[in-house]
Every structure is written in C-alpha cells, then in structure tokens.
C-alpha cells in the first residue's frame, strides 16, 4: 500500500475560474522522500492542503495511509505531520511552550517521542525560553519541524520548508529530513529551489497546476531532450544579450558563472554547433570565447520543459 496516492486530482478556485491543480496523479512509496518542485503558483500548496484534508478536490480521489482524504479525514488528521508554507507557530509563545502545546494537541508529550526529535531539539534547547517570533528563519523552521514530528507521524507533509532560509540552514534541514526518512517516515516536500532536488528520491516538476515530468532526479536529467553547451567569455552582460539573438539556439540564459545555450537535437555534431556559435559571436567582435558541451542540471531541465511558457 502506498502511503500517498493521488488520482486525477483537479482543484479550482473562485468558482472554477482559477485552475490550481490540473488532473494530477502520482503516488509516493513507503519511506520515500518525494519532492514537488516548482515556482509559486504551480499548485504545490493546493496539493498539500488536499492531502492534509484541509481542502476538498473538485475531481479525483486521493488517499493518505490508505484512508480517503474526504471521507476519513478525521483518521488522517491524527496520523500525519504537517508544516504549512507560512511559519505557523505561535510567535508569542516560547519554543518550549509551542512544543508542549502541540504535544498536548496530539495527546502526547515531549518526553514520549523525544528520540525522534532529539537531533533537532538539542539545537533548539539553548533558546527554549525564547519567544518563537524572535528566532531566526533557520531556527523557526527547525521548531516547526519539531512540532510537526512530536506525535510520531507516519507521513510528513512539508510545504516549502526552506523558503527564505539561508543556504547553510537549508542544507542542515535536508540532512535532518534524510535521517527521518531512515527511520521509516514517508516525506512529501515541496521547494522552489531547484538545487535542492538532489536530496529527494523522486521528484515531480510542476508548473501551472500540471506535472511536467516525474522521476528520479538522475533520470530526469538523462531525459533532457536538447543539447546543452556552456559558454564563457568577457563582458558577460553583453555576451548574453548577443547570444540571445542567435537564431539557431533554442535557449540562452545565465547559469552560475557561465552562459548556458541549448540547441535542438537535429543530427548536427557538437563540433558543428560549437563552430557555428563561435563564428556568430566572433563576427560580433568577441575574442576569448570558450564553448564546451555540458551536462544539464535540474534547472536546465525545467527551463527546457517550460519553454513554451516563456514570454518575451
């Protein structure tokens, strides 16, 4: 039995005018870390709210731990841990008061499930008398995770837990999630940071309520349908602008310290493509140009998959 299953879930708002989730189906395996990856407005939060029984879907069925999200909502509410996108703890209560409150909400205590939260709680302990509103972004997320874990849920829903958090805290947070996964907890997590997909077992890339692609991160990268090259040269701003006018390329954008240029796979060899681009840029007066084939990252995949959506 899969801990999370969605079948043809559709959700609209404002009497059908706004389509938030568009016929989405997927299922998550036992003790898997499954990532919903996509920008704001992709429909991630609606999916979370449907699975946590907070919203009713317009169409389709979904179940969590074998229970139907509409009919058996009460049973689901006792079994899952949920961390909404916004920081949703009481800012005027201290760290310890928040934890105690959420523990009693689930009829348990900090002591009873201390093993599960120990790793995270030791980092919070020095600040246990501090009001939650006065914690840093990273600490708030850790506290929220503790509160979501306090009743030992079998499924954990984390809606953009790392948004607005600095890179180091984000990394630590993912390490914690991996340890939880090892203890058998199934995790559905969403993020807008493309570089975080490496932490997930499987991911679904989402945009405008639809799943663009779903697989392991490696397989998604392997299924990249274009040829990608890395371009380096002087005067990056101008170089990018000029490269964008090269009509043979299907995409060109800044990526890290270099520029990524993508081409359709149409039988041309790498050398031909490189020479073509080089010639074009040299005719524009660029000299020290370096072009090499490169392996795409998830962001490149996302951009390739959403190409039709790009304006301008």
């Amino acid at each position: 039995m899969n801990p999370i299953t969605l079948q043809n879930i559709t959700k609209t708002y404002e009497k059908g005018k706004v389509l938030a989730v568009d016929d989405v189906s997927f299922s998550v395996n036992d003790s898997e870390m499954f990532g919903l990856i996509g920008p704001d407005g992709a429909g991630k939060t609606s999916i979370f709210r449907i699975l946590t029984t907070l919203l009713l879907p317009d169409k389709g069925t979904a179940s969590v731990c074998g229970k139907d999200v509409v009919k058996d909502y009460k049973a689901i509410r006792g079994m899952v841990g949920y961390m909404p996108g916004r920081f949703s703890l009481y800012q005027d209560l201290s760290v310890e008061e928040n934890l105690n409150f959420f523990a009693s909400l689930f009829n348990t205590s900090i002591k009873q499930n201390y093993e599960l939260i120990k790793d995270i709680y030791v980092q919070l302990e020095p600040f246990k008398d501090r009001r939650a509103g006065k914690l840093s972004g990273g600490m708030k997320q850790k506290l929220a995770l503790c509160c979501a874990l306090i009743h030992k849920p079998s499924v954990l829903f984390l809606d953009e837990p790392t948004t607005g958090v600095d890179a180091v805290s984000r990394f630590e947070f993912w390490e914690m999630l991996k340890r939880l996964k090892k203890q058998g907890i199934t995790i559905l997590v969403s993020t807008a940071y493309m570089d975080e997909v490496e932490h997930c077992d499987r991911i679904a890339l989402m945009q405008n309520g639809k799943i663009l692609s779903m697989d392991t991160p490696d397989k998604i990268i392997k299924s990249y349908s274009e040829k990608l090259f890395e371009l380096k040269g002087d005067n990056k701003h101008k170089l990018l602008k000029d490269t964008m006018t090269y009509s043979d390329a299907v995409g060109s954008y800044a990526s890290g310290e270099s520029i990524h240029v993508s081409f359709k796979k149409n039988g041309k060899s790498d050398a031909d493509i490189i020479n073509g681009l080089k010639g074009f840029l040299e005719s524009k007066g660029y000299q020290h140009i370096e072009i090499v084939p490169t392996v795409p990252n998830i962001e490149d995949c996302f951009l390739s998959l959403t190409k039709t959506e790009i304006h301008g």
Partner: peptide, 19 residues
C-alpha cells in the same frame, strides 16, 4: 524568492540592463 526559473532569468536580464 519563489519565482520560477524562466522568470528569474528574465529578472536578471533586467538587472543587467539597468546596471
């Protein structure tokens, strides 16, 4: 924050132009 990759790229193009 929270902007999709394509729009983020375009946002940076705007920044370049402004600079």
């Amino acid at each position: 924050g929270g902007v999709d990759p394509a729009n983020r790229k375009q946002f940076w193009e705007l920044i370049y132009e402004t600079a």
